[in-house]
């Protein structure tokens, strides 16, 4: 028998990959922990993982934030067993919409608008994307829009809180350890 030569396939891993993976892991942990919280209405959640996305956006730019956000949606849904379920597509629609809005919001003048603005805008985009997908696919009836005030209230509330937490994390003296 021929002897198999042991071969290892090495994928080049950059410091960027490590950083994105660490932030994505934090975001996934938050979104999984959040599923344990009771919710008054399906779809109303604090969205704590978005704090991580906001921090990454402010520190490393939109590309990294998009990676973290989308990895969070895919891996988070895998962890809770919702991958490719309706909830996954709703989360994906929300994440894509809020990333689109964040791409525009990062060009706001930073002296005037801080992370709280970005967070609130992203939260509204999130529910907007979810409602539009729900209207187009899950509940083909304009009745879903009657819930808009409730979702918008939640978006304003949790968007502000998440934005404040992100702002505080960003304002904190950096505890960032040197990259390995």
């Amino acid at each position: 028998m021929p002897i198999m030569t042991p071969s290892t396939i090495e994928l080049p891993v950059t410091a960027d990959d490590y950083r994105i993976a660490r932030y994505a892991a934090a975001a996934i942990a938050l979104s999984v922990a959040e599923t344990a919280l009771p919710s008054p209405l399906p779809g109303i959640k604090p969205g704590l993982a978005n704090i991580i996305v906001l921090v990454v956006l402010a520190r490393y730019g939109w590309r990294d934030a998009a990676w973290v956000s989308l990895l969070r949606v895919v891996a988070g849904s895998l962890v809770v067993g919702q991958f490719l379920a309706p909830g996954f597509f709703l989360a994906l629609a929300g994440a894509l919409c809020s990333l689109a809005v964040l791409a525009a919001a990062q060009h706001l003048p930073p002296r005037v608008f801080g992370p709280v603005s970005a967070s609130v805008l992203a939260a509204f985009a999130h529910i907007g994307g979810q409602l539009l997908l729900a209207r187009a696919w899950l509940v083909p009836h304009d009745g879903v829009f009657y819930l808009l005030p409730l979702f918008a209230t939640a978006a304003l509330l949790f968007g502000s809180i998440n934005g404040l937490v992100a702002a505080r994390l960003l304002a904190a003296p950096s505890t960032e350890s040197p990259t390995p």
């Binding site: 706001l108 005037v112 801080g114 603005s117 805008l121 702002a167």
Partner: peptide, 20 residues
């Protein structure tokens, strides 16, 4: 930490009011 209110910039207040 810095107090919460210092984390809000002028535009943030404006945006929050408009959204509310």
């Amino acid at each position: 930490q810095a107090p919460w209110r210092t984390l809000l910039r002028p535009g943030d207040w404006l945006l929050l009011l408009c959204c509310a």
